[in-house]
Amino acid sequence: MRIRRVITTRDGGVSSAPYESFNLGDHVGDDPAAVAANRARLAEELGLDHDRLVWMEQVHGRTAAVVDGPREAPLEATDAVVTAVPGLALVVLVADCVPVLLADPEAGVVGAVHAGRVGARVGVVPAALAAMKEAGADVARVEVLLGPSVCGECYEVPQAMQTDVERHLPGSACRTRKGTPGIDLRAGLWRQLADAGVSRIGIDPRCTNEERSLFSHRREGTTGRLAAITWVDQGENR
């Protein structure tokens, strides 16, 4: 089966500053009409009906939901979503956290995860893998893309926080560009996935804090959200 993955940038929408312009987050203070217009354009560009996009009310937790059909409303208090339904696109919104897109192409099961510091620490990615297995996926076949996020060289934290996260997410501790304690969530998630038996892991190396075409809460404070989307294409492989 053909797995599709898309990551948006901040360009090409209708939102005004400080959300300019392709903000897809409806919880950040942007004009709801602008967000609705941006979401409608996203669905059109993907070639999907608007209700085929599954959104989450992300809360930095580890709840993973399995969906089996279109939804008008976001999944409440959910940070990972899984489906085996072709043409149902799973959306994760970020502005520094790690968007994690997972797929078992043979089983036709996909997942999307919002993995910030808190969610990664409490195990949202293992929860997503467990939900994928229940939906028919085999971890040995799972492919993962760790999307753009704040990099370890930019993610400065207090020493106590670094120590705590490293204890729960080994491999995440690092030093920032300034030589201070930092967290590299993608490095920690890569190790966690590899330890779980996932062998195909790709990383989008872009840092949201450094790349001006991406939204970054750390850089800007009040800002929009980019989307990472995955789905099983209903068409033939190309």
Rank of each mutant, 00 (worst) to 15 (best):
Q159C: 00
Y19H: 14
A43W: 10
L145P: 01
L145K: 04
C207S: 14
V85I: 13
Q162Y: 01
V165D: 02
V82S: 07
T8E: 07
H168W: 15
G152C: 02
G202M: 12
D184G: 15
E134C: 08
P126R: 04
L185K: 04
L214K: 01
D96W: 06
R177E: 15
V157H: 01
D104M: 00
L90G: 05
S213R: 09
M1V: 12
V66L: 09
D26V: 05
A140Y: 02
A194R: 12
S21L: 07
T9G: 03
L88C: 00
Y155A: 03
R117T: 15
A120S: 15
T176Y: 09
H168N: 11
N237Y: 11
A89F: 11
Q234C: 06
V59A: 14
F22D: 08
T9D: 08
T180D: 10
I229H: 05
E76D: 14
G221K: 04
E134R: 15
G29L: 05
W55K: 03
A34R: 12
A77V: 13
P170W: 02
P86I: 11
V144K: 01
A131F: 07
G224K: 03
G47Y: 01
R52Y: 08
K133P: 00
K133C: 02
L102M: 14
A103I: 08
D204C: 06
A89Y: 13
V110D: 00
A17L: 09
R186Y: 04
F22Y: 15
E220V: 04
P99V: 11
R191L: 15
E45G: 07
G147S: 01
D26C: 08
G87I: 10
R41T: 14
D51Q: 13
V94G: 03
A187M: 08
S199D: 13
R219P: 04
H27N: 11
A34C: 11
Q159I: 03
V142W: 01
G171M: 02
F215Y: 15
L24P: 11
W55N: 00
E210F: 03
